[in-house]
Simulated scan of single mutants.
Amino acid sequence: MNITSFLLYCIIITITPGPTNIVILSTVHNFGTKKAMEYTYGATIAFGLLLVISAMLNTMLITAMPKILIVMQIIGSFYMCYLAYQIYKMDTSKPTVNQTGTFVSGFLMQFLNPKVLLFTMTVIPSFILPYYTAMPAVTISVITITLIGFLAFITWVLFGTIFKAFLQKHTRAVNVMMALFLAYAAVMIWV
Rank of each mutant, 00 (worst) to 15 (best):
I75A: 14
S26W: 06
A137N: 12
L49G: 14
N21I: 10
G106H: 03
M177W: 10
G42A: 10
L49E: 03
W156V: 01
T161S: 12
A179V: 04
T102C: 09
V71P: 04
H170K: 15
K169V: 00
G76K: 08
Q168D: 14
I189L: 08
A36Q: 00
I154A: 09
M135Y: 11
V28I: 12
N113C: 08
M60Q: 10
F159S: 11
N58E: 11
I162K: 11
N21H: 08
N30T: 15
A55D: 02
M1V: 11
V23W: 05
C10N: 14
P136L: 09
I62T: 12
T96L: 05
L8F: 14
F119S: 09
V191R: 11
G32H: 02
G48L: 08
I124K: 04
F6Y: 14
Q73C: 15
I3Y: 13
L51Y: 09
I128G: 06
P19C: 01
M135E: 13
S126F: 09
F78W: 06
C10I: 04
V71T: 12
M37W: 13
L180A: 13
M109P: 06
S105K: 15
T122M: 12
T96K: 04
Q86W: 07
I74T: 13
I74S: 12
F78Q: 02
L69A: 14
T102H: 08
V123C: 14
V157H: 00
T44K: 05
S54Y: 03
G32D: 06
H170D: 07
I3R: 05
T146L: 04
Y184C: 06
I75R: 01
I74H: 05
T144P: 03
M90T: 11
K94I: 11
Q99W: 04
K169F: 01
Y85M: 08
V52S: 10
S126Y: 09
I128Q: 11
S5A: 15
G101L: 03
F47L: 13
A152M: 07
Y132R: 10
S5H: 07
W156P: 03
P136F: 07
T59E: 08
N113A: 05
A134R: 09
G76A: 15
L108V: 15
S5D: 10
V123E: 04
I22R: 05
L61P: 02
W190G: 08
P19F: 13
Q99R: 12
S5K: 08
G48W: 03
T59M: 13
T33F: 12
Q168C: 08
M178R: 00
F181L: 15
F150L: 15
F127R: 05
A64K: 05
L108A: 15
M56S: 10
V52Q: 09
T40K: 02
F159I: 09
G149R: 00
K67L: 11
F6H: 03
F111E: 06
I24W: 01
Y39G: 02
F107M: 05
